[in-house]
């Protein structure tokens, strides 16, 4: 809207721009940025500032009258709270298990194998893996709930193969949500790696083959070093995505049974809205935000903007 306001002035803008002093011209040129800046400041920077402030208060859901500044209380409380430490541990398991190991490795394996597979198989794999990724998060959660349910598909499959069955969502909920996240998220890594492998110069691989390198050696010594930046970028991105997964876990287990699959986002939600401790929930949010910010900073270091 602000941009439209500029239009009448602009009709003779070309002639006038020479007469306009440089700082004013700079401002005019920056004007189209205004709506973006307003939205980002109000809806992202604002809440983050809010988050930093309220993390140091005892704000509760019921009535804002009793909000006091409490210093580091929320944080000392968190680090003495066994439930918080439990959810930190589970978050680590979830991020490392499902993203760093699961999605990253499976995505790379699929991308490498798909280069060698015949075309129909490649299209099929590509299609189903991406389908799982395109599905809305809650639907994926529901499907995975049904899959891991005691009377669900996985147990029927295991029974058919004469393997021991389990009540996955009760005995190993964190494994179930990890596998669910691998199922849902691998497509992203697969696409990143497929694009990266596409850019590996053919001559390099062929030269290694002529020198007698086997397929494994070619992968380890030639392909992986060439695409290492894509691997790092991918690791950062999937870590960030996995760190904020809420819907998938909440649909499948709601953090339970007990707190056996309660990762930080779920714990934060439950403290803030079910225990009405907004201040405490916000402190946990701040921890999450800081961890996310660190990974995000590493990620932009990796990308490096082009030099001007």
């Amino acid at each position: 809207m602000t941009a439209l306001a500029q239009a009448p002035r602009g009709t003779d803008g070309h002639r006038r721009s020479r007469g306009v002093p440089v700082p004013v011209r700079g401002l005019l040129r920056g004007l189209p940025l205004l709506p973006a800046v307003v939205l980002l400041v109000v809806f992202l920077a604002g809440p983050i500032a809010y988050c930093v402030y309220y993390a140091f208060t005892d704000m509760q859901l019921t009535g804002a009258s009793g909000t006091h500044f409490t210093g580091l209380d929320n944080f000392t409380r968190a680090f003495g709270d066994s439930d918080f430490l439990n959810s930190v541990r589970l978050t680590l398991v979830f991020v490392i298990g499902s993203a760093v190991v699961g999605q990253n490795t499976l995505g790379l394996a699929l991308a490498v194998l798909m280069e060698k597979a015949s075309k129909p198989v490649r299209s099929l794999t590509n299609g189903v893996v991406i389908a799982a990724w395109v599905l809305p998060e809650v639907v994926a959660g529901y499907l995975m709930y049904a899959f891991f349910y005691d009377q669900g598909s996985l147990n029927s499959l295991l029974a058919a193969l004469h393997l021991p069955r389990q009540n996955w969502l009760y005995t190993l909920p964190i494994l179930a949500v990890c596998l669910a996240n691998v199922w849902r998220g691998t497509a992203f890594s697969m696409m990143v790696f497929s694009a990266a492998l596409n850019d590996v110069p053919r001559e390099l691989v062929e030269a290694a083959e002529m020198d007698g390198a086997g397929p494994w050696q070619r992968l380890w010594r030639v392909t992986l070093p060439v695409i290492r930046r894509s691997i790092l970028t991918n690791l950062m991105l999937i870590t960030l995505q996995t760190l904020s997964v809420f819907g998938l876990i909440y649909t499948m287990t709601r953090g339970g049974p007990g707190n056996k699959s309660e990762t930080l986002p779920v714990f934060m939600y439950q403290q803030a809205f079910q225990n009405s401790l907004i201040g405490y929930g916000t402190a946990i949010a701040l921890v999450l935000l800081v961890v996310g910010a660190l990974f995000s900073a590493v990620y932009i270091r990796l990308l490096r903007l082009e030099d001007e």
């Binding site: 992202l44 809440p47 983050i48 950062m236 986002p265 934060m268 803030a272 907004i278 001007e308």
Partner: peptide, 30 residues
């Protein structure tokens, strides 16, 4: 080209990575 361009782009890129889940509680209070 402007001196503010790079810092602005870095900020944008940085915020693409921030976990939106974590901002939701302050957004709710706001």
């Amino acid at each position: 080209r402007s001196r503010l361009r790079r810092p602005f782009l870095y900020t944008i890129l940085f915020s693409t990575g921030l976990p939106i889940t974590a901002v939701m509680i302050p957004v709710y209070s706001m």
